[in-house]
């Protein structure tokens, strides 16, 4: 992969947090990863392995203690242009109605009112949110609808890069499957570079072109998933890959004996 194809790149990035409770917490240790354009990469790992930290570094909300984080070849020194972020929950602005939440990105850019409302309505349709939720406040919507709304908000300004932090984790399973399908639909049409973080191995294998296994702040394996989409979760190939990923975890956790 040429350097110019690497849309997102972590180069030996490390991140240390100093808290009153524990003196030195290394969320990331020498983390390296390169995401080529248009690829859907899933990072899988247990809670506390540094997954959220790595997305925050990519989004420019925090900076590495050592090493580099690059977007389109340039070091990240603040939230970069053309990047959309979808978090697990609670980032919608509760004082704005649904449509106003979706238009936030365009509003920040100075787009006119009629234009951005039209764009927002188009995006809401793509994530399968009915028009009548437009005037609802986020607290009036179900969890699944709120996540669709968060996705719509991120997609509205047409970002070329999507960073997703366990976006479907707080949603029930059937809804999660629908949301995964909707995400794949959008990605098939737009071809963004997606970095998707999750603790669910099944979700990672279902979505990704490539699964990156992560524990204790570093990558331990990269497993390509060459299966055609839509994928059958019960097929032999799917289950084989699940087991492959799971084995990558247990081997490395056992080997390292849970060092902190």
């Amino acid at each position: 992969m040429r350097a110019s194809d690497q849309v997102i790149r972590f180069d030996g990035a490390s991140k240390c947090f100093v808290t009153p409770a524990r003196p030195e917490v290394w969320a990331l240790r020498d983390f390296s990863l390169a995401c080529p354009a248009g690829q859907l990469t899933c990072v899988v790992g247990p809670s506390g392995c540094g997954k959220t930290t790595l997305l925050r570094l990519a989004a420019g909300l925090d900076f590495p203690t050592s090493g580099r984080v690059l977007m389109r070849g340039r070091p990240v020194d603040g939230p970069p242009d053309g990047v959309g972020l979808v978090s697990q929950e609670g980032t919608l602005l509760p004082w704005r109605r649904a449509l106003a939440n979706v238009t936030l990105g365009l509003e920040i850019r100075g787009m006119g009112r009629a234009e951005r409302r039209a764009a927002a309505r188009a995006v809401l349709e793509r994530v399968h949110l009915a028009r009548d939720v437009e005037r609802s406040y986020p607290h009036e919507l179900s969890g699944g609808m709120r996540q669709r709304l968060a996705l719509a908000r991120a997609l509205c300004p047409n970002p070329r890069i999507l960073l997703m932090d366990e976006p479907f984790a707080s949603v029930d399973e059937p809804t999660r499957h629908h949301l995964q399908g909707d995400l794949l639909g959008v990605w098939a049409a737009d071809g963004q570079t997606i970095l998707f973080v999750t603790h669910s191995i099944e979700e990672a294998v279902y979505l990704a072109d490539r699964v990156v296994v992560m524990t204790f702040g570093r990558t331990v394996a990269e497993i390509p998933v060459p299966l055609p989409r839509p994928r059958d979760r019960l097929s032999q190939e799917f289950i084989d890959l699940l087991l492959l990923v799971r084995r990558a975890f247990t081997e490395h956790v056992d080997a390292k004996g849970g060092d902190a």
Partner: peptide
């Protein structure tokens, strides 16, 4: 003010004034 809200706006490109 929730930090998550501020960060969401910043990622969408908001300036300090925005």
């Amino acid at each position: 003010v929730r930090e998550a809200h501020i960060e969401a706006a910043r990622v969408l490109g908001a300036t300090r004034r925005q």
